[in-house]
């Protein structure tokens, strides 16, 4: 390889940052394109991460430092891909800022959008002050803004908001919300030890290592109450407190609870702002809007298009470690692809 090959990376979230670092180590020249002012994606908005509650900003700092100190890596922030055309063995890319790039391979790390919780009208997000989302709570944990009530006595977490919900257009499970709800429930209980904290879940999907420990800790140490049933309706009483309705499906009876704060666990959906990119590249996509992997078991980082690779939550909800591993795998796949091309 005489000249460094350009790899265009669409999205400078955790997957993009990790892949850029690996690709640079392999001798390529990664070019990150990020629509926001700051790289880091959703990690910017999160306070602590499950299951060990590591600080999100420290993880992000480590991801960023490897990229920022590397002269081989370019980052274009506040930019998006306006036009992308396939050439013989490369892609011609024009950014919104007018910058033109020729890239030998393209890595899609466009991630996900957090489900817009106001679309679940019955939960009253944006209508009742005391209804907030997982992201709002995380932002408050991070020290930004305030929560709508000073000393909540009763707090509820609603799992599966916009997930496992065909009417919301998302049949899929967003995978990380169960464990995030348990993490946030523990954290808020530590802040307000006298509050009664409920989690309304359909199934507790504690699939990862130490997740079940968190669930046990939530029950045993913090007395968090788990109600198996999806919240059906939220309203406001005279005092402005929330009246929450659900079925306790284990008791086979409807339940009602008055809450001071209700946290909606908004799930992951396809990134709306990437629609034009997906369309221009004619990427294969599933009904849920997440990108398809050409071979999800042995070749998970390829889409069906030549020279196009995928990593992270753009192919479906993922945990952060999964995303990082996929970014590493994508770097390997790109290395293999470009070497084969050279030969």
């Amino acid at each position: 390889m005489n000249r460094k090959k350009n790899i265009l990376i669409a999205g400078a979230g955790p997957a993009g940052l990790e892949a850029a670092y690996r690709l640079s180590m392999m001798g390529f020249s990664p070019i990150l394109v990020e629509k926001e002012e700051m790289p880091g994606g959703h990690l910017n908005k999160w306070d602590r991460l499950f299951p060990e509650r590591e600080a999100a900003d420290e993880i992000l700092e480590r991801l960023l430092s490897r990229v920022k100190n590397d002269v081989n890596i370019k980052i274009f922030t506040s930019s998006y891909i306006e036009q992308i055309n396939e050439l013989n063995d490369s892609y011609n890319v024009i950014l919104s800022t007018g910058v033109t790039i020729i890239a030998e391979a393209v890595l899609i790390t466009t991630g996900f959008d957090l489900f817009n919780a106001s679309r679940k009208e019955e939960y009253g997000y944006g209508i009742y002050e005391r209804v907030i989302t997982n992201a709002d709570l995380e932002s408050w944990f991070k020290g930004n803004g305030k929560i709508p009530v000073e000393n909540p006595q009763s707090i509820g977490f609603v799992h599966c908001v916009g997930s496992r919900d065909e009417k919301a257009g998302n049949r899929h499970c967003s995978k990380v919300c169960c464990v995030t709800a348990v993490k946030q429930a523990i954290e808020i209980k530590e802040i307000f030890p006298h509050a009664t904290v409920y989690c309304f879940y359909m199934d507790l999907r504690m699939f990862g290592r130490h997740y079940e420990d968190m669930y046990l800790e939530a029950q045993q140490k913090h007395g968090i109450r788990f109600i198996r049933g999806r919240v059906s309706e939220v309203s406001e009483n005279k005092e402005g407190r929330l009246v929450v309705k659900a079925e306790d499906t284990l008791a086979g009876k409807p339940v009602k609870a008055t809450m001071d704060l209700l946290v909606l666990m908004a799930g992951m959906t396809r990134p709306a702002s990437s629609a034009s990119l997906y369309e221009q590249l004619d990427l294969s996509m599933d009904e849920d809007g997440f990108l398809r992997q050409s071979d999800a078991i042995l070749n998970g980082q390829s889409n069906h298009r030549k020279g196009i690779f995928v990593a992270g939550a753009c192919t479906g909800p993922k945990t952060l470690p999964d995303t990082i591993h996929e970014a590493d795998s994508a770097a390997m796949a790109i290395y293999e692809y470009l070497n084969r091309m050279t030969v």
Partner: peptide, 10 residues
């Protein structure tokens, strides 16, 4: 109650 939120739905 956030009146603007209701207006948006309306």
């Amino acid at each position: 109650m956030i009146y603007e939120g209701k207006k948006k739905i309306w």
